[in-house]
């Protein structure tokens, strides 16, 4: 059986592509999947940090493309889940160090050995983006409930259509239910109203994600956190399970004290 290549992209920077890639990779590995996560953000590598693997890198994707290392040498095994491997980006150089054809070849070479290959796309619509989607079977678009992020996601969806990719699915990141309730933030429905693509999941805004990122331990490892559970659910949806969306409503004071409503 050969693995599925999924690219995570957004257009706008800072909406949570890398966090999403790290957490979905981790959550899939927790479900006994063999996973490779590939950092396509050459020159600005980050995925290693979020996974806490920065000190284990010897070779990177540019070394593989330019023949200084074999693919297997460059892959870094995760410290928690042995079936989760990272192919790091180069920290020197830039996006032009790799072309879309080479990126697709790397994805093909990984395919027989993994169930999932997750590609973390850089922000933007230039070569880095085209590199990242070149080998993809499916694409996940990440957005936040902000006008600018939604508009960029819309542009990206248009570009994916032009590149003849299958219809992408959507993750809405950093939802604050209380702000949505006060109509101060776009709701998931507002976002879907414009983008009109299938919803894969909703991640609540959670301070724990910042702590987890600094610590190099993805939140998906801990079901105690709502955001961690949301990522675990998305991983199960990627495996074809039907998992209802989490109830993200923040419980009020009394509910917290007395455990009302739950």
């Amino acid at each position: 059986m050969s693995g599925q290549v999924i690219t995570i992209t957004s257009g706008k920077g800072g909406v949570g592509k890398t966090t999403t890639t790290a957490n979905l990779g981790t959550a899939l590995a927790m479900l006994d999947q063999r996973v490779a996560v590939l950092d396509a953000d050459i020159g600005l590598r980050n995925l290693d940090l979020v996974l806490g693997l920065e000190n284990r890198i010897v070779y990177d994707v540019v070394d593989v493309v330019e023949g200084r290392a074999r693919l297997a040498q460059a892959l870094v095994r995760d410290k928690r889940f042995p079936e989760l491997h990272l192919l790091p980006a180069a920290q020197t150089r830039d996006k032009s160090a790799v072309n879309p054809r080479q990126m697709a070849q790397i994805c093909e070479a990984l395919r027989p050995r993994y169930d999932f290959i997750l590609v973390d796309s850089p922000a933007g619509i230039e070569q880095g983006f085209h590199n990242a989607i070149s080998g993809a079977d499916r694409v996940i678009v990440v957005t936040t409930p902000e006008l600018s992020a939604v508009r960029d996601a819309d542009r990206i969806i248009g570009l994916l259509e032009a590149a003849d990719k299958q219809q992408p699915s959507l993750i809405v990141n950093r939802i604050k239910p209380s702000m949505v309730k006060r109509q101060e933030m776009l709701s998931v429905e507002d976002v879907l109203d414009v983008l009109a693509i299938p919803l894969l999941g909703v991640i609540p805004d959670d301070e724990q994600i910042i702590i987890a990122t600094n610590d190099g331990t993805p939140v998906a490892t801990d079901s105690k956190y709502l955001s961690g559970r949301a990522y675990q659910n998305i991983a199960r949806r990627l495996l074809g399970e039907e998992v209802p969306l989490l109830d993200l409503r923040e419980r009020g004071f009394f509910e917290r004290i007395f455990g009302f409503g739950r």
Partner: peptide
């Protein structure tokens, strides 16, 4: 004003 911040008024 109450609707500002909303993407589009529904």
């Amino acid at each position: 004003k109450a609707k500002r911040g909303r993407l589009w008024q529904r």
